[in-house]
Design a protein around this nucleic acid. Structure first.
Lengths: 411, 411
DNA sequence: CCTATTTTTTCGAGCCTCGAAAAAACACTG
DNA sequence: CAGTGTTTTTTCGAGGCTCGAAAAAATAGG
């Protein structure tokens, strides 16, 4: 049931708030933090003194950005890059990418690797992941002990507790508890995240003006994925991973979807769906993986001449529009970011999308709904993972419930 | 931005928590409250002493429910019925119902009234509401000063701040700021709530076992409404009122909906949709209001023989099933309560609904999705309003941010 | 009547935040 | 270059809150 607030929760939460204010950026001074958190100067002073003493924060150079104001200059607080580090592991189709990121968010070590995820055995897939992580950990320039968290991301369905990949389009393997495996192997806490959720997290950090409390990130790729932020929090469904926007029903009994069902949004707007419609192979044609290059060529053709290619994109737009309309009927309109290779073809998709959305209850103010596009999803996913892992460190390690006060001093 | 926790917030929140634990029922003892809130006995003791002193809580008879245990018997805490009172105003088609409820949740005064909402002028509608509230306030048995809150409920769309009805099927009038009107008239804080949201609130109080953190209440009536509770909180969309489940798109370009658009779930499952399908009037037939008696007769006919009536219910089930399937794709399956006159015909709806939902991604475990039915929505809406208003009193008046400590003693 | 048991209250200790005042750090002025 | 004004940051005592331990209260059983 609902639990009371203990006295020591107070400090914990306010510590987390100060760290959060600093991470949000701009080298805020103590005074600025006091203003945004509505806590008194004395409190902020005490907490930041603690945090600096523990090597979590550090004071910036006061001479920077030549303060032209009258009195004592504000001294900006920043994150101490050496306070900790995190690792991101992004597993996508035929591609594995790992990075080590310092506490301030800078990449300090990375490795990328092509592999044939669709045909690999379960053991090989796990083995590659473990091996690449091990290689990064053994990097002589790195302080292994400082890596406090690993965040993995994968396209597909993850479990509630962010421990395992349950199903993914990039591999025939199912139910791999990556988080548990890496934790057992390296003794570092790990989580298994959904790629679209990480995209949403990254967008929030990249552009907090536009992507603040409510917004939607849609991945237009082989499949259609969604990351949804509602009321400032990642909405991950009540049980499993992200909202399966791509499998909302567009046309009952309609086109064959990769998931085996019929009429899903993805069966009209996924790369394979656009491809088979453009090739006039019929709506029951077996879904195939289409390369990004082929998709770009397809879009070019569609731009060039009216024909089945253009019609395929129109159908995709229609499906996305009705899907978004139904979604907006539930949650009300919000800014949308279209991410992935087909986001580069959004010019072909948008007209039909807008037309469809205008036919729905959620599209009442359809002209005011704004779309952003970002063709490259991988950097977003990695950034999201990094921020997710760093936020974990901020909250769970540097502002823990049981104040251990490790007193470790990185000086 | 995110705001820090002040020192005085602590008491406020823990006070609210104690009140909440008592309202949740069962005359809990101080020890039981300490257990559920994870606060210490001393804290609970101090807070409950305060609350009893302020006349908010009262100690129950210790001899009740003959405690057979060894030591000092627990003394149950209850809400002092005289601590405050709230008023509910439920405006539904041709019907206005008002009740005064004491702090413990008992109805102490009520009045109901038939009126022709569909033809009334704006002024007449507002006038009737104001008049009926005034009559209750002038009830000689009542302590007017004790009424701390009014909660109105109406079918339709309300604004974000719960101040105004923006649109409702029960009247051609739009944009009536009922909450502001009543506040101005009587000087009592008021809110304007969506009827389906209040149904959801009521279900949560009625059966917290089943309706705890995630569930859905669907109103099957003239229109299709939804109240959605996610992660223990009423989900009211990001901007406006409740999720407009009834206006998710079932079939793009399909049957004509009351909202003027095409293919909405409601255009297949609303009373008028079932009625016109049963009468084989075509999917573009103008929506008409059907009486509850007519709907019951229709259901009886459908049960009796196979024919267009039965087919109409099948279509309704199909629309609801695909709609729920799409919803479940986003939020994952959750218990559903079907409320309203057509919930009494759920036996006719369920087979097609289950068949449809099994075709969707959200219906993966469709057999495990459970439905409850409750034919009568009005009592639910009233209960929900009452609890909403009482919770407001609990949290905003008896556990206020600025501790005024009125010290009023109801003895 | 005494003892065991359980609930509730009391009391001092330890934190935490706050406000006010002091200290610090700089710009401006003559 | 010393003095003054301004703004930021720290210090310090006061007031609150929760907690744990111990005491007090209330009952059943013998």
């Amino acid at each position: 049931m609902s639990v009371g607030i203990r006295h020591d929760d107070l400090r914990r939460r306010n510590r987390a708030m100060v760290i959060g204010a600093v991470r949000r950026g701009g080298q805020p001074s103590r005074t600025e933090i006091a203003a945004t958190t509505a806590l008194s100067h004395s409190t902020i002073s005490a907490i930041s003194a603690d945090l600096i003493g523990e090597g979590i924060l550090s004071e910036g150079k006061p001479n920077e950005a030549g303060s032209l104001k009258r009195g004592r200059p504000q001294v900006g607080l920043g994150l101490n890059p050496e306070a900790a580090a995190v690792m991101t592991v992004v597993l996508s189709l035929n591609f594995l990418s790992v990075a080590v990121i310092d506490y301030a968010g800078q990449v300090i070590s990375e490795e990328q690797r092509r592999l044939d995820t669709l045909t690999m055995s379960r053991e090989a897939l796990i083995g590659e992941c473990v091996a690449i992580v091990r290689r990064r950990l053994e990097d002589p320039d790195l302080d292994v002990a400082s890596i406090a968290r690993i965040a993995l991301a994968i396209q597909g369905i993850t479990d509630t507790e962010a421990r395992a990949m349950l199903w993914s389009p990039i591999t025939p393997q199912t139910d791999i508890a990556f988080a548990d495996i890496l934790e057992a192997e390296f003794g570092i806490p790990a989580t298994m995240e959904n790629d679209c959720n990480m995209m949403a997290v990254a967008l929030r950090w990249r552009d907090p003006e536009r992507y603040r409390d409510d917004f939607i990130a849609i991945l237009l790729s082989h499949g259609i994925g969604m990351g949804l932020v509602l009321k400032g929090e990642l909405f991950t469904g009540t049980h499993s991973s992200g909202g399966e926007f791509g499998h909302m029903i567009h046309r009952p009994g309609g086109a064959l979807c990769r998931c085996g069902r019929r009429g899903c949004v993805e069966a009209y707007a996924g790369n394979y769906a656009i491809w088979r419609n453009a090739g006039q192979m019929g709506e029951d044609a077996k879904p195939v993986d289409v390369s990004d290059a082929d998709m770009r060529a397809l879009a070019a053709t569609a731009r060039e001449r009216d024909g089945p290619e253009r019609e395929a994109y129109r159908k995709a737009g229609e499906a996305l529009g009705y899907g978004l309309g139904s979604l907006f009927a539930l949650i009300d309109p919000a800014p949308v970011a279209m991410v992935g290779v087909s986001a580069a073809a959004f010019d072909l998709i948008e007209p039909a999308l807008r037309e469809a959305i205008a036919q729905t209850a959620g599209g009442q103010h359809s002209t005011s709904i704004s779309f952003d596009t970002e063709p490259n999803e991988l950097p977003l996913i990695r950034e999201g993972c990094a921020m997710r892992a760093l936020t974990f460190v901020d909250q769970e390690i540097f502002a823990p419930s049981v104040q251990v006060r490790s007193g470790k001093n990185v000086a």
